[in-house]
């Protein structure tokens, strides 16, 4: 089952204007990704934690998402400190961990998590359909939004189709192993998914033409910038000012 565990809750964050949330997430992500020093990352991570807390999300789902990203970060911690040339801090057997390597891992850890948490609190909290329409108001080309919404619309259908095919295979005694037979079965399964997708696309296209489709999904959602959004916008600008301020302060001092 494909789920969107964060999208349909109700918190102050969920009620904010999706356009505002998208813009903030983009600006915050870029600013954080470009950071080369530690100073701005502490406020950035702090702000991201506050935002996730305000979104009141399902903690189990949240922990799972954070864990996935940090598995790769952990892999970097295992490799980078010992391969990065620099001043040795401590030595394990033949391997020497360097200060520069550890610093780089620290930077990546803070950046990854800050960006992830802001993304979860700002973007994963809106249904994809809403996101598509919000992107439209932000002047993203309509064709790409149409493609995104169509893809979103059909992943659930195709996934059910996959489950059905898999169930049919299991009933016939299919048990996945490391074998040619298994790979052949999966290849035919996926091939069938592609075939069904293309068959369905023809029907969908015909249905869309019949209904006078002219290249755009219209949204009945009226995006309204409410007073609470203005307050949030001011706070978001303030948050970015704090992060940038920390960057400059660390350079100047």
């Amino acid at each position: 089952m494909i789920l969107e565990p964060f999208a349909f809750e109700n918190s102050i964050i969920h009620r904010l204007d999706p356009r505002l949330r998208l813009v903030f997430a983009v600006v915050f992500s870029i600013a954080t990704a470009l950071t080369q020093s530690f100073a701005p990352l502490y406020p950035a991570l702090g702000i991201s934690i506050i935002l996730v807390a305000m979104a009141r999300l399902d903690s189990l789902a949240l922990i799972k998402r954070i864990a996935v990203v940090n598995v790769f970060v952990l892999f970097l911690w295992v490799v980078l400190p010992f391969t990065y040339e620099g001043d040795a801090v401590f030595i394990i057997g033949p391997l020497a961990a360097t200060e520069q390597g550890l610093m780089l891992c620290g930077l990546i850890t803070l950046k990854s998590n800050a960006i992830l948490l802001v993304f979860i609190s700002m973007v994963a909290t809106m249904p994809v359909a809403v996101m598509g329409h919000a992107m439209g108001r932000l002047k993203v080309p309509p064709k790409i939004i149409l493609l995104l919404l169509l893809t979103y619309r059909y992943i659930f259908v195709i996934e059910q189709e996959y489950q059905r095919l898999l169930r049919a295979a299991r009933v016939r005694g299919f048990a996945p192993k490391t074998s040619m037979h298994t790979y052949r079965t999966y290849a035919y399964l996926v091939g069938m998914l592609f075939v069904r997708a293309s068959e369905r696309a023809k029907n969908v296209d015909n249905a869309m033409v019949c209904r006078g489709f002219s290249g755009e999904f219209h949204s009945l959602t009226e995006f309204a910038f409410k007073p609470v959004d203005s307050v949030a916008a001011v706070l978001m600008v303030l948050a970015l000012v704090i992060i940038e301020g920390a960057r400059w302060a660390s350079i100047l001092i």
Binding site: L146, L147, L149, L150, T151, Y152, R153, Y154, I155, V157, I158, V190, L193, F194, R196, A197, S198, R200, A201, K202, V204, D205
Partner: peptide
């Protein structure tokens, strides 16, 4: 077609 293949 492209959208539904992207879903697949």
């Amino acid at each position: 077609g492209a959208g539904i293949l992207a879903s697949a």
